[in-house]
Nucleic acid binder design. Sequence first.
DNA 1: ACGGTACGATACGTGTCGTACCGTAAATAA
DNA 2: TTATTTACGGTACGACACGTATCGTACCGT
Lengths: 211, 211
Amino acid sequence: MTEPTTSVTAPRGRPRSERSHQAIISATNELLNERGFVDLTIDEVALRAKVSKTTIYRRWPTKGTLVFEAFSDQFLALQPIPSAGSLHEDLLAALRGFIKVVKGTVMGRTLAGLVAEVQRDPDLAEVWRDRFVVRVRTHHRVMIDRAIERGEVSNDVDAEVVLDLLYGAAYHRLLQSHLPLSDGFAQTVVDTVVAGVLTNHAGTVAKSVGG
Amino acid sequence: MTEPTTSVTAPRGRPRSERSHQAIISATNELLNERGFVDLTIDEVALRAKVSKTTIYRRWPTKGTLVFEAFSDQFLALQPIPSAGSLHEDLLAALRGFIKVVKGTVMGRTLAGLVAEVQRDPDLAEVWRDRFVVRVRTHHRVMIDRAIERGEVSNDVDAEVVLDLLYGAAYHRLLQSHLPLSDGFAQTVVDTVVAGVLTNHAGTVAKSVGG
DNA sequence: ACGGTACGATACGTGTCGTACCGTAAATAA
DNA sequence: TTATTTACGGTACGACACGTATCGTACCGT
């Protein structure tokens, strides 16, 4: 109890280098930009970070987990929860925010690459679900919860399905590349979903009709 | 002009063995069932099909294209266009059909594996879009076109977005595995999307309200 | 017969992953 | 100070699967 709470058990041997950690993450992000997920190799990350390959494998068991860690915090920081007032405005702003990041940065291809890797690596899939999908969805669900609290929609709305409709459609265009992630797409998606929710789950107060 | 239309240019040398072709496709499907996309190897397909590996590579440049061909016809044949009468009924039947195949057979994991591979192989991505995504969407779009013809919805409905909402949501649950592809999910998805479409794009005749 | 193409069998080169090994460096404990 | 513990760099290595190359043989039309 006299020890500081920062370290309950004193680490014994040589501590892991925080500097190496940062160098690896940085090199990973650099190479992600230059080559993309598929053509990124651990050897090259080690070379770029001036670190032994062994050091990388001591911390991350696979390429997927490394890229995941380099990607996720960065991406999640760019997904704010809008609170403009109406459900329509909030969802549209959120979807536009997603599209902006996905189209405007290399993170779109990295995200696609990670979704792909998740289909190949069950261990990564678990991490992905618990530390990304669940996290970002919990984040986004707040918009719907707030609409319920306001009485804009009733509380029997299936928030999970609403999120699946919005982001499912967006991920679909990202992964299949059959049509562009345009702003018109975002508008139509939100128009349709919100209208559907309001029709089937009208709230207790006058609804605000968006533009 | 005197030649039959079946072969414009007469093939010169030894023709490709149709028997080998079938054996390769069959072996691929067998191994797809046993091991899944990731753990399927070309060497093993060759062994199982009693065919040289060279023969496989003469016809399909990569593992992805081979699996694509073994998968796509089979899958597409199981995606009929419902015509029950109302848009709601048609879309629900179609989505249920998709879920049934994806959950009931190994094709769900194969589909996920192919979507993953498409993110890694640009050549396969092109084939995938042109010979699968476009094809299945054209197929499904008929349901919406017919609703327009019936006057159930107006002709300014964005059919592409409707498909993205429906199948985007389903693919999302397939690929992210955060929630199950339950029948309740299918119902809520269709309820919401159809309500949204009818609200924003009411047709010229009395709409049928689904039970 | 002859040229053209597919075939089987197999060896090979390539790329990448992840591990093993070894001597060294940095920290704590006695 | 010395011993112990753990991380580090450097590198070699094993494993695996991909895709290619080679070569002699089997079928096909002319």
